[in-house]
Amino acid sequence: MTPQITLSGARSSHTAFRPSRIVSWTLLFLGGLVMVTPILFMLSTSLKDASQVYDLKLIPASPSLDNYWTVLSDGRFLRWFLNSLVVAVAVTVSNVFFDSLVGYTLAKFRFRGRYVVFIAILSTLMIPTEMLVIPWYLMASTFGWIDSYWGIMFPGMMTAFGTFLMKQFFETVPDEFLEAARIDGLNEFTIWWRVAMPLVTPALSALAIFTFLGNWTAFFWPLIVTNSRELYTLPIGLSSFAVEQAIQWEMIMTGASLATIPTLLVFLLLQRYIVRGVMLAGLKG
């Protein structure tokens, strides 16, 4: 018998009124205010002109969207935006597939060398990217990947971060489910894809959000590997506002605000999967 999986909506079924709930809600809300204040300053600065940047008032004296028009009317901005989108989406898809496959294998298969493989992959988190940039560059230049999407993407197609995350979440999946599927005669790949994957949707969504975000804001490697401005990703493009000796902060803030929009959309789109709990039915010894 294949176990039944139902996804529950909101979590606690008991919503009785309790004073402690009000206290925790209020505290959470106040904490949220602290969290959001710096971001409000970012938005406020993006509405100021260069001469008001240093007045540091939260409400601009004469707010205007001029900075946004300046940034958006530069056709290259949209191009950079698109580049970032292509790179981030492609890398995210690859990571969601491979990281969860490897994570699943490390969590649910028993074989000699499993721990060694896990530690070896984990150890790749421990070398700062800065030291890998030169070997990667030589690799890219040998294979002609410089100044291409693939050149920007290839080092990040799989990450130890995602593998580790997925391994930990697959460990929470009860073995009984997989055994049941095996008895039904499914092959291992199908078991992973059809049975195990749906059980870790929250983690998959989290992985997708983080990978997208990480690539969306990546700066150092894309800068090294691209030459033409047409291939810049958004963060590199935005850094042209930080020129020698002088940084146009109102422009940086405008760009940063605009850059937050897609990541926010991805978050809003995927967060419901994180939040939607997994209720396991038919789980009786």
């Binding site: 809300f29 969290m35 959001v36 970012m42 850094s239 803030m253 940063a256």
Partner: peptide, 28 residues
């Protein structure tokens, strides 16, 4: 996890800083 009133909004607010650009936020 246990709060329901404005749950989505509060969660998004706590996550928002993670979405921002480090250089811009450091300045603030």
């Amino acid at each position: 996890d246990r709060v329901q009133f404005m749950h989505g909004l509060i969660r998004a607010i706590y996550f928002l800083p993670f979405l921002t650009t480090a250089a811009a936020m450091a300045w603030v």
